[in-house]
Computed example of a mutant assay.
Amino acid sequence: MAFTGFETRAIHAGQEPDPQTGAVVVPIYQVSTYAQDGVGGLRGYEYSRTGNPTRAALEECLADLEGGSRGLAFASGMAAEDTLLRTIASPGDHVIIPNDAYGGTYRLFSTVSSNWGVKWDAVPLADPEAVRAAVRPETVAIWVETPTNPLLNVADIALLADVAHDAGALLVVDNTFASPYLQRPLVEGADVVVHSTTKYLGGHSDVVSGALVTRDRELGERVAFHQNTMGAVAGPFDSWLALRGIKTLAVRMDRHCANAEQVVAALTHHPKVTEVLYPGLPEHPGHKIAEAQMKGFGGMVSFRVAGGEEAALRVCAATRLFTLAESLGGVESLIEHPGRMTHASTSGSPLEVPSDLVRLSVGIESGSDLVADIEAALETA
């Protein structure tokens, strides 16, 4: 019997009980090498950089949840991005990225890929005509975040897939903020989905890992070759932690979304907040698109504080439940100042974020407690 429910597949895809022991959870195969039945007589694995049973279970599960043909797990989200970029782009090639990309992605393009000859342009991806105008004959990919980090802009995945494919390019979507529970870019026409599995997929702020899923198996095999060659793979314990997190992804995301809506409702009426950035708001410019391609609007919220940067910094320092920290997507709520923290690498560039911006990763605590905490902190602004 084929099971179609997301919650069922998150718990069971790639995770059959262990055939030798009956263990209902995939074991941690903390091993580097594997015995062979004669030279070349493999029992499925030879060396854990190339393949590991725990990592293989995670990769199969991710491919299933995203609706792709091949999943690959890496040591971090940035390792996944770097490996993909080195697979699909060569010196002289061109990539379009968001004009409000995550700071680490911007740094990868601006200081790493540029040094080996890959050209790039930062474009507002919510404007399809701007994207079409930026396409060149040497464009090999349009690199999308939706919603974006930290400005929560939304891009139309299906429309950008058409733009990319008309140009003979790939559409790559960073699905970290939404997770496959809320959004499935491959179904919308994307070619590759990228994740920092550190975030919502892991969900407990206890693992650093990344992943990507390809729609096309041949592309997946090319990336797998580079994964093995470059070696930034997810270890077995990290893979096990990510698998454990995925089992509760659906119920966690429902709570993240519900709590975010409570926090947004409080922020939109607060006199010390000048703007709330959240795709669930009807006035958000990408609301209709998000409504069409997402199951929910997510747990990430950004807002701008009256009084500028110093007021924003005071708010970040004053919360008690929202922990001042980088990263996102864990069960606990986090607060940060992107300009000084996660997006400091964009300072002085066209991608620099507003200095009065605060970003929240809304956790799964009591929603009323979170609202009370952020309202108290805003009194310091």
Rank of each mutant, 00 (worst) to 15 (best):
D18A: 11
P27H: 02
Q20A: 14
Q20M: 13
Y34H: 08
A35G: 03
R9P: 00
Q36R: 05
V31A: 07
D18W: 07
I11H: 03
P27Q: 05
Q15I: 02
V25N: 15
P27L: 05
S32V: 03
G38Q: 06
T33K: 04
P17I: 11
H12L: 15
D18M: 09
T8I: 12
H12R: 12
A10F: 03
Y34C: 07
V31E: 11
T8D: 11
G22Y: 10
T21I: 14
V39Q: 09
P27R: 03
A13M: 11
Q15W: 00
T21E: 11
G22F: 09
V24A: 13
A10G: 01
E16I: 02
P17Y: 08
V39L: 14
P19Q: 07
Q20E: 15
G38A: 06
G38S: 06
A10R: 00
Y29Q: 05
V24E: 14
R9D: 07
P27G: 05
D37L: 12
H12N: 10
G22E: 13
T21L: 12
T21C: 10
T8L: 07
Q36L: 12
I28M: 05
G38F: 05
P27K: 03
V31Y: 00
V24D: 13
P17G: 11
Y29A: 14
T33A: 12
A13G: 09
Q20D: 10
D37I: 07
P17S: 12
A13F: 04
A13I: 02
Q15L: 06
T33E: 13
Y29C: 13
R9K: 15
Q20G: 01
G14R: 05
Q15E: 09
A35S: 07
I11G: 01
Y29L: 06
A35Y: 03
P17D: 08
Q36S: 06
V26G: 01
A13W: 05
Y34Q: 06
R9A: 12
T8Q: 11
V26C: 05
A35V: 09
V26E: 00
I11R: 14
A35Q: 09
V39F: 12
S32Y: 04
Y34G: 06
A35W: 06
V26D: 01
Q20S: 07
Y29S: 12
V25G: 03
I28F: 02
A10P: 01
A13R: 03
P27V: 00
Q20N: 13
Q15D: 03
V39M: 08
D37C: 04
G38E: 04
V24G: 04
V25Q: 14
D18T: 06
D37N: 06
A23W: 07
P27N: 02
D18C: 14
Q30G: 15
V31Q: 13
G38L: 09
T21F: 11
Q30M: 14
E16G: 05
V39D: 11
V26I: 10
D18Q: 08
Y29R: 10
I11F: 02
P17E: 07
I28E: 11
E16K: 05
P19L: 11
Q30A: 15
V25R: 15
G22Q: 09
